[in-house]
Write a protein that binds this DNA or RNA. Sequence first.
DNA 1: TTAAGTGCAAAATCTTTGCAAATGT
DNA 2: ACATTTGCAAAGATTTTGCACTTAA
Lengths: 143, 143
Amino acid sequence: MTTATNNTFEHLLDQHHLKKTVPRLRVLAMMAEKNTATSQPDLENLMQDVDRVTLYRILNVFEEKGIIHKVFDLNGTANYAICTSNCQEHHHHDEHLHFNCTVCNNVYCLNDLSLPAFNLPLGFKANGFTIYASGTCQKCTKK
Amino acid sequence: MTTATNNTFEHLLDQHHLKKTVPRLRVLAMMAEKNTATSQPDLENLMQDVDRVTLYRILNVFEEKGIIHKVFDLNGTANYAICTSNCQEHHHHDEHLHFNCTVCNNVYCLNDLSLPAFNLPLGFKANGFTIYASGTCQKCTKK
DNA sequence: TTAAGTGCAAAATCTTTGCAAATGT
DNA sequence: ACATTTGCAAAGATTTTGCACTTAA
């Protein structure tokens, strides 16, 4: 959905001292062309010819480096989406709303929503949070 | 942490037309005596003599019936906690804050916190939500 | 040329399924 | 006595590990 060029991706990999390999670029391309997070099983299907183990490894480095972030959907399946901004290595800032549609099961990362503050009990120190809502998305609410 | 008697549990099982078996009562007792959600691996350790498959089945019925609810921690591991109130069969209302400590990995269900409202984009209809924060808990914040 | 990344085979885990024996009502 | 629930064995799925071959720099 974003108009990210292949150059953007290559730059991204450079930034994190990762080699620009074919499988990695394809993973980034796949994720960028959707407006929802992509589940690992989905990725596997979309990239039949890439070894499943390779996919695991790619997703792991990407997450460590802060290139993508991981969300678990209602079934506990890992879904991945490209981080929009300010994610550093080993410290994600994906403080947005994750919306999981109970019909199509898509996970939307609603980045532009302004999130309200909330209080924590004494002694708790949060360094990150996400609001996680489930229901029906635009498409599935209709009929 | 709650002072739930064994009678409470038996009543709970009755309510949902489930037989009051030893493994089921023990699962409820284990969960009730902690103030954090319990991970499936933890439960397995605590209940060595109960078959792992039985545990899967117990957790599944309990969740379906709305007796417990499931939260995924930062590692994607399922954690379970007894529902405090108004959970109906197939429709949970666990709209509280889940706090996952990055040090001890405990998941706290902070039920008494008043949660702020938030808006969704046009077309999205939420029927449930939870705020999910990570950081350090009371114990681990100290030193 | 060589360090990093991939693919394949195999191990280790985790989850589900089927069925006979045990248990609660 | 009968329907549920459990335990065990075994199948299926997911995730990790080791190592030789390939690729990007």
